[in-house]
Structures are given as structure tokens and as C-alpha cells.
């Protein structure tokens, strides 16, 4: 392990002329054109129009508040439910487990607008089970829970597989109850994975659009989330106002990613 980083540094010097230059050049240029340039245009437009105060309009504050609150609630639920599902998939065994495991990724593969239509079919106005959550804040939470389902499960699952069960057996044999064992032995080991899954779920929820747009009804001050507010501003020709709130979402995304990165580096350093 200790030798390879040095070798990885030593090799490219010898080869940087050929393929390396191509790889570095092409990927930098591609990223600049595809990602960096549009985002720079977004920030520049907000700056050029001097539309920063658009963020503080009552409607956009309400939308941002609702978005953060709903995303936080969803992240908390997912931390518990996602860990429970991961546990059931790793430690339990029952017929059909493989199918359940495969189904976890379904929300990722399903287009978000289909999620909207799907949830409305069962929990909307013509609900066969008598639950009509359409155009309420519950519908927003439901949609966000659907799309963020894979994150915590998929970050916790591999850690749980690797986790040595001998520690738990030792704790149990020393008289710890199963709850104490979970709290004192298992949870500290899972926590980094749970937190990075939760952070990803939170970031996804903050920006979510397609699954929310049909189910929430988009009533200003009541059920309008930030992404739908931005979309409404664009549709009514107020790109400057839309840009200002977009920059806020961009900043949140960056902050979450940097947070996860810093957290991972710290955790891995402790491991080594």
C-alpha cells in the first residue's frame, strides 16, 4: 500500500508525453465546456443582473425553507429506514431476498416523472386505497422518500457485509443486550456510511424536480419547493430571479459534496 502512491507519481513523468497528455487535455476541455461554462454563465447572470435580492423575496424564502425542511425530514427517515433495510438484506435471510436487493435500485433507474405519475396513481385523487395525498406536503415527502431510497441502503450495505460479527458476539457474551450491542458496537462502525448516504440523499432531495412537480400542486407558500419555484420563474420569463435561487442550490450541492469528501478523507485516514 505504502509503495504504490509513490510509484503512481513516478510513472507518469516518463509517459506524460503520449496518452497522458491526451487524457488530461480531453477530459479537462470536456468538463469545462459541458459543466463549468454553463455554471459560470449562471453565476455571471445573477451577478450581472444584480438579482441577488431575488433570493430574499417572500416566495423564494418560503420555497427554500420548505425544501430544506422536507429534505431534512426525508434524510432522517432514510437514515433509520435505510439502515433497517440494509440490515434486513445482509443479516436476515428469507426467500426472495435477491429480488428485494435488486429492487432497491429501481428508484434510481425509474425516470422521475414516472415516479410522479406512479405515486399519484395510488396515492392521488383516484386512489383505490382511499389515500389522497396529492397537492400536500405529505406528497412531497413521499416523492422524496421514493427517489432517495437507494442512497443509505447502498452505502451501509457493503460496510455491514464487511463488519466482523465476532465483536458483536463478544459483546453479547459479556452480557450486553442486543440493543446495547447495536448502539455501542455496530452503530459506531456504520455511522460514517450512514452519514455519507444521508448527505447524498439530502443533496438529491434539495434539487429534486421531476418526482415532485406533478404531486405537489406547486402552491406558492404551501407546497412549492425550490426547484419548482425556479422552474416557474423561468416559465414566466424571469431568468434573473430564477438564477439567484439556483445559485443558492448550487452552493448547497457544492457544500454537501465537499463535506462528504472531507469526511471520507478523515475516516480513511483514521482507518490507515
Amino acid at each position: 500500500m505504502a509503495a504504490s502512491p509513490q510509484a503512481a507519481v513516478a510513472l507518469p513523468r516518463a509517459r506524460l508525453s503520449g496518452g497522458a497528455g491526451l487524457a488530461v487535455g480531453v477530459s479537462t476541455a470536456y468538463l469545462s465546456v459541458v459543466v463549468l461554462l454553463p455554471l459560470a454563465a449562471l453565476v455571471w447572470a445573477t451577478h450581472a443582473h444584480g438579482s441577488w435580492q431575488a433570493v430574499t423575496s417572500k416566495q423564494s424564502i418560503a420555497a427554500l425553507k420548505l425544501t430544506l425542511l422536507a429534505s431534512f425530514a426525508v434524510a432522517v427517515v432514510q437514515a433509520i429506514a435505510g439502515t433497517a433495510v440494509a440490515w434486513t438484506l445482509v443479516r436476515d435471510s428469507f426467500p426472495g431476498q435477491g429480488a428485494v436487493n435488486a429492487v432497491i435500485d429501481f428508484p434510481f433507474a425509474l425516470p422521475t416523472i414516472v415516479t410522479s405519475v406512479t405515486l399519484l396513481a395510488l396515492y392521488g385523487p383516484r386512489s383505490p386505497v382511499g389515500i389522497d395525498a396529492a397537492f400536500t406536503r405529505w406528497a412531497i415527502v413521499l416523492a422524496l422518500l421514493f427517489v432517495t431510497l437507494p442512497f443509505v441502503v447502498r452505502t451501509v450495505q457493503p460496510v455491514l457485509i464487511e463488519l466482523d460479527q465476532e465483536m458483536e458476539e463478544a459483546a453479547a457474551s459479556l452480557g450486553a443486550s442486543s440493543l446495547t450491542t447495536f448502539r455501542r458496537v455496530v452503530l459506531p462502525n456504520l455511522l460514517p456510511a450512514v452519514l455519507s448516504g444521508v448527505a447524498l440523499a439530502f443533496a438529491r432531495a434539495v434539487g429534486e424536480f421531476g418526482s415532485v412537480v406533478l404531486v405537489s400542486g406547486n402552491l406558492p407558500f404551501k407546497t412549492e419547493v425550490a426547484s419548482v419555484y425556479i422552474f416557474g420563474r423561468i416559465e414566466s420569463g424571469d431568468a434573473a430571479g430564477a438564477a439567484a435561487v439556483s445559485v443558492v442550490l448550487l452552493a448547497i450541492s457544492f457544500a454537501v459534496l465537499l463535506g462528504i469528501g472531507a469526511f471520507r478523507r478523515r475516516v480513511t485516514r483514521h482507518d490507515v
Binding site: 454553463p38 449562471l42 434539487g207 425556479i230 431568468a239 438564477a243 442550490l249 448550487l250 450541492s253 469528501g261
Partner: peptide, 22 residues
């Protein structure tokens, strides 16, 4: 490395608006 991950965490509407403004 950081920029590559950004599309995972960024709202698609913000992506669309950025292209619109560019």
C-alpha cells in the same frame, strides 16, 4: 475530481437554466 460529482447533487432545473443562460 470535485466537478465530476457535481451533476449527482445538482438540481436538473439548475442545469437547464445554466444552459439557457449560456
Amino acid at each position: 475530481n470535485a466537478l465530476v460529482d457535481l451533476p449527482l447533487a445538482l438540481s436538473p432545473v439548475v442545469v437547464g437554466l445554466s444552459l439557457l443562460l449560456l
